[in-house]
Amino acid sequence: NKFNKEMRNAYWEIALLPNLNNQQKRAFIRSLYDDPSQSANLLAEAKKLNDAQA
C-alpha cells in the first residue's frame, strides 16, 4: 500500500528531526495516523518547523 510506505517513511523522518521536541514529534505522528494520505504534507510542515527552530 502506497500510503503505508509513505507514512512509514514520514514517521521515521519526523522522529529523527533534531530540532523538534517530543511533543511536536508526537503531534505530527498522531496526524500521520489520523490521515496517512497527508504524509508528504505533514513531513514538509515538520521539516519547515525543524528548520525554523534550528
Results as ranks from 00 to 15, higher is better:
N1A: 04
N1P: 09
K2M: 08
K2S: 12
F3A: 05
F3L: 12
N4V: 05
N4A: 04
N4R: 03
N4H: 10
K5T: 10
K5A: 12
K5I: 07
K5V: 05
K5M: 03
E6L: 06
E6S: 03
E6V: 05
E6I: 04
M7Y: 07
M7E: 02
M7F: 11
M7I: 12
M7A: 10
M7W: 11
R8M: 14
R8A: 13
R8K: 05
N9R: 12
N9H: 15
N9F: 06
N9Q: 15
N9Y: 15
A10W: 06
A10L: 06
A10F: 14
A10M: 08
A10C: 02
Y11N: 03
Y11D: 01
Y11S: 09
Y11P: 01
W12C: 03
W12T: 14
W12L: 12
W12G: 06
W12P: 00
W12F: 14
E13S: 08
E13L: 13
E13F: 15
E13A: 15
I14L: 05
I14H: 00
I14S: 00
I14N: 00
A15G: 11
A15Y: 15
A15Q: 15
A15F: 15
L16T: 11
L16A: 13
L16S: 14
L16V: 10
L17K: 02
P18C: 02
P18M: 08
P18F: 04
P18G: 07
P18N: 05
N19H: 11
N19G: 08
N19L: 09
N19C: 03
L20H: 00
L20V: 04
L20T: 00
L20C: 01
L20N: 00
L20A: 00
N21L: 08
N21Y: 10
N21G: 09
N21T: 13
N22H: 12
N22G: 12
N22S: 15
Q23C: 03
Q23V: 06
Q23L: 09
Q24W: 02
Q24S: 04
Q24F: 02
Q24T: 05
Q24V: 06
Q24N: 03
K25A: 02
K25I: 08
R26K: 07
R26V: 07
R26D: 08
R26W: 04
R26S: 09
R26A: 06
R26L: 05
A27G: 07
A27P: 02
A27H: 10
F28C: 01
F28W: 04
F28K: 01
F28P: 00
F28E: 00
F28N: 00
I29K: 07
I29C: 02
R30P: 00
R30N: 08
R30H: 10
S31D: 05
S31G: 09
L32E: 00
Y33V: 12
Y33K: 04
Y33D: 02
Y33N: 04
D34Y: 12
D34L: 13
D34A: 12
D34I: 14
D35Y: 05
D35C: 03
D35T: 11
D35V: 06
D35F: 13
D35R: 07
P36Y: 06
S37T: 08
S37W: 10
S37C: 03
S37K: 12
Q38G: 06
Q38L: 06
Q38I: 09
S39G: 12
S39Q: 08
S39C: 02
S39K: 14
A40V: 11
A40M: 14
A40Q: 06
A40R: 08
A40S: 12
L42S: 05
L42D: 01
L42T: 10
L42F: 10
L42H: 07
L43I: 14
L43V: 15
L43P: 01
L43Q: 05
A44M: 11
A44K: 15
A44N: 10
E45N: 10
E45F: 06
E45C: 04
A46N: 00
A46E: 00
A46S: 06
K47F: 08
K47N: 11
K47Q: 08
K47T: 05
K47C: 02
K47V: 06
K48Y: 12
K48P: 00
K48F: 09
K48A: 10
K48V: 07
K48N: 15
K48M: 12
L49N: 03
L49E: 04
L49D: 03
N50C: 02
N50L: 01
N50I: 01
D51W: 12
D51G: 11
D51N: 13
D51R: 09
D51F: 12
A52C: 02
A52I: 12
A52P: 03
A52R: 08
Q53D: 06
Q53A: 14
Q53M: 13
Q53C: 02
A54G: 08
A54R: 01
